[in-house]
Design a protein around this nucleic acid. Structure first.
Lengths: 374, 374
DNA sequence: CATGTTTGTTAGTTCAGCACACTTACATAT
DNA sequence: ATATGTAAGTGTGCTGAACTAACAAACATG
């Protein structure tokens, strides 16, 4: 059973458009507008979308019967002509179940509204389970959350470490002992709901994009935890890359003479920025120097990416006491290493979503896939 | 007059679809199929596109009257059932005028077929002209090529150095004295044809993509000449970046202690890879060492990009005696600096289109914009 | 020769969105 | 108070693209 809806297809895939696609697309436009700009009248929607009022009315009627939007009465300010009726998204018309497998030996999850607010949260110890056992654990945990949700569900999203293809096949996730696992399909069959599976850094960047800054000029999110991973949104879409391994920036060599990394090669970026290591060094030595060095290494690795993509924004996600100074140092390091035209509008900042970034991002993935909202 | 046709819009722009868009899209699908896979019967096209035979027949009839495709009779091999009638693209049904401003103090141009074959070639000295004079020169040169073309024209494409926005505004091209110049619009008004303007590296990578390897996992083309520029195709679309400055990799610092660059900062990648400099060093010293050093620096700059994007292919374009050894060295340097999952299917190779890459690429830009073929 | 298969066409249907005309509901001018 | 203008939202019938159904043409095979 494939739950992948047409709106979630890769933008460049050449696929025929049937009549329904047109309607779905226009529906998405309206939802997107309401999502991004808040409540609006039908006439407003007609103006912003370019559709006629008739068509908008028709689509809004459809959304009303589904409960996705509601009428909010007329605005207080009074102008000439018939006063409009505002319609707005119903944030908890539907819920989303999001599961985060990026936390050590744990299955964390939550039920969230369409706006990414956590309604209900839970976690279970994984106790070292891997392979099929881990799948069963995740599946059971998801079923439990589904059962405890008070609203109809839009879908389920799983954020996992490792390399994941766009259609939810986990190619490789050593921690969980998963290889070539069709996790999205398997869970969809078990749960009878649309299921999306994506890399944890990818869901995090999706969260930042959907619920945070929108990053029109491209958005790269770096997750600092045990390891180092990145997610990338370009032109409003997640970048997956050749083999689904986009964002694997942790083991880029930034110093051939650097300390040996767990991967067997010396001087990986991760040896400078993994949280455990940073904590050790901070405890041992001069904090400013340690952070300056780590930030400089980060800038060194980011500079070619920023220049080549003319990237607008890098977001750091991780412990606040670390990422805040790192963001400042890294931004300067990048600026020093690229030409002004590349640096002009470039910023490095910390995540605006905090710890729930991954869960919110998973919600964003479902929203994008099911409603075309992003 | 805006000639920008809907098919050339940014993939993520939220725009209503009217009925005609659907038809244009399906038309593009058929053209794309014929372009990529060669002649086919209507029934074949129906199978590959998912459209019905009826719809395909209708679209093919339209393309036949426009002269874009022709019937090629029945194939010789004989199977059961009514023999099909093959239809194929007519490569010189229409011509494209392409102009290359990346050559020193010169305006080079050509008339090409839809398959990127040069029909007619010409060049004029620029004699230091800049600003409006240069625009007039380009416009006149284009008009001349248009007049000398023997077929109806699909459009005009201009490849220029500098920073260019997706809609053909030259933000900054110091060599030509252009700043915030609406070149595409101005030329379109003067020539009464669709006009596309893009950075020379961008057109080159488009050529490699359309007429070369397709680079499904992402394609980065590096042009080695006086300077160093790159163009990037991701998910089948040109990447423009935040401010249209994507690909500006030449002035990324790869060695803070390196030689001073013309841009004022030390150790830019360009100081190692600009052709004039390479030639000097090769004449002066040990050729192998010089190339090894340059290749290593290139690898150093590319590694973070390759890892972050999980890029599949880097193409080097420039003097064959330089880029061939450089490609080998750089590929190895990248492999040494990224983890296996990123390096697995990664290759660095030299351009398959040679000197006409920029012109062919310009043709590809017009094809993509006007016919949706790419 | 009869049969099955594949191609391409004709005829009629479906459906999304549109233009147009209309009603409703308000502000403002007389 | 009445008339006028303006904007919102809704029926009605039309258009155009793609669909289904049915069929004729042209071939291979038993």
């Amino acid at each position: 059973m494939s739950w992948r809806s047409p709106t979630s297809r890769s933008p460049r895939e050449r696929i025929k458009l049937d009549r329904a696609d047109s309607r779905r697309h226009h529906r998405s436009m309206l939802l997107q507008e309401l999502f991004a700009a808040g409540p609006a009248s039908r006439a407003d929607l007609a103006r912003s979308s370019g559709l006629t009022r008739v068509t908008v009315s028709d689509l809004v009627a459809e959304l009303l019967t589904e409960g996705l939007v509601e009428e909010l009465g007329t605005p207080s300010e009074s102008r000439v002509g018939k006063p409009p009726t505002l319609v707005g998204l119903v944030a908890d018309a539907k819920h989303v179940v999001a599961i985060d497998l990026s936390v050590d030996d744990q299955v964390a999850g939550a039920v969230l509204t369409l706006e990414g607010q956590v309604v209900l949260r839970d976690a279970k110890p994984r106790q070292g389970r891997t392979g099929a056992d881990a799948v069963a654990l995740v599946s059971g945990f998801a079923a439990d959350l589904i059962a405890r949700s008070s609203r109809p569900l839009l879908g389920v999203a799983v954020a996992t470490p490792g390399v994941v293809t766009p259609d939810g096949v986990v190619l490789d996730a050593p921690n969980l002992g998963w290889h070539d696992l069709h996790l999205a399909d398997d869970l969809a069959a078990a749960l009878d709901l649309p299921v999306y599976v994506a890399n944890d850094a990818n869901t995090a960047v999706m969260g930042e994009f959907v619920f945070g800054s929108r990053g029109e000029g491209g958005l790269l999110l770096l997750r600092l935890s045990t390891g180092l991973g990145a997610g990338l949104v370009i032109n409003g879409a997640l970048l997956h890359g050749q083999g689904g391994a986009a964002g694997e920036i942790g083991h880029v060599q930034v110093d051939p003479g650097g300390p040996l990394c767990g991967c067997g090669r010396p001087g990986c970026l991760e040896t400078y920025l993994a949280v455990p290591r940073l904590r050790r060094e901070l405890a041992a030595g001069d904090a400013d120097a340690v952070l300056a060095d780590a930030g400089a290494r980060l800038g060194q690795a980011l500079a070619p990416v920023v220049a080549t993509l003319n990237l607008g924004e890098v977001v750091l996600s991780g412990p606040a006491d670390l990422v805040e100074p790192l963001a400042r140092v890294a931004e300067q390091a990048v600026r020093d290493r690229v030409m002004p035209v590349s640096a002009q509008q470039f910023v490095v900042r910390t995540s605006s979503l905090g710890d729930d970034g991954v869960l919110a991002g998973a919600t964003g993935v479902v929203l994008a896939g099911e409603l075309g909202v992003s």
